[in-house]
Design a protein around this nucleic acid. Structure first.
Lengths: 150, 150
DNA sequence: GAGAAGTTTCAGAGATCTCTGAAGGTTCGT
DNA sequence: ACGAACCTTCAGAGATCTCTGAAACTTCTC
């Protein structure tokens, strides 16, 4: 079955956030499906795409921890499903970008003379990202704690 | 003067976050410069790029509120500089993506039958992004308050 | 251990994005 | 009002990214 229009829109949104288009479509398919898991075959059929693309996308999603291979008794095929806390995981990996910003600002600070306008601007940038880098993980952990305690 | 290597690295990091490469380089130039403001001419010289590219980049940065045109007494040229709270502004615009995620999840919920696995997954996604959508602005406001109260 | 089914890899075609450069527009001084 | 300096726009060249499809590899069954 082809992906629904809302599913394609969701994939687009994920792509806007930096995810490859095909990777996003695979994730959307796994979100919307009414099955508990999908095989690579299911995915390439519903996305009308090559098995090669599915393989690459599935690998990427597995590496970043958004989906997982599920042992499939009685089938040779690989089964996949969304992992627990996938969204928190996605957010955490976005958070690596915050760290990168903090680091490049720090580099800039080291490379500019003190008491220059550039130095001051970079220090403000560094402070802002350092603040986020401290606070975002707390936010995500709070969410996870609230979820699991149900 | 050409952009320093740390400045180019910073531009790369911004580009990773979704900003156009040239737009990111302009922002980096304005961050690192030891002048208070830079003209379009300064920018195209230090970036070794066409005036057209600078014009486009500067327009984008102005629209999203990261830089501002500064009235330049005694000069016909436009002067630019980083705006106050530029980083908080950048974060806020990233935050629009959180809103988009929330919205597409909501659409998906409306389009799937209740008590299906897809419905449940989408509801969890929606809840997560709704939580962020509530919390991130608080975080940014707290930062701004801390800054200005110095 | 041979064959079938499924999966992965990767070179290159095709699609997409970005930048340039030149034409045209705007603003300022005289 | 005219010319000079500067800025903006945009078509198309060039660079970059993404997907396909076929070959190679792995795993399972008989």
């Amino acid at each position: 079955m082809a992906l629904s229009e809302p599913a394609e829109r969701l994939a687009l949104a994920l792509a806007q956030g930096g995810m490859q288009r095909m990777t996003a479509r695979v994730l959307a398919a796994l979100l919307f499906t009414d099955q508990e898991t999908m095989t690579a075959g299911d995915l390439s059929e519903s996305l009308a795409t090559s098995s090669g693309s599915v393989s690459t996308a599935v690998k990427t999603l597995t590496v970043v921890g958004l989906i997982e291979r599920v042992p499939a008794p009685g089938s040779r095929r690989e089964h996949f499903r969304l992992r627990e806390h996938a969204w928190a995981t996605l957010m955490s990996s976005q958070n690596q970008l915050v760290k990168l910003m903090m680091d490049v600002a720090e580099e800039g600070i080291a490379a500019t003379g003190e008491d220059t306008p550039g130095h001051r601007r970079l220090a403000e940038m560094r402070d802002f990202y350092a603040y986020l880098w401290q606070r975002l993980p707390e936010l995500i952990d709070t969410w996870k704690a609230g979820r699991t305690s149900r």
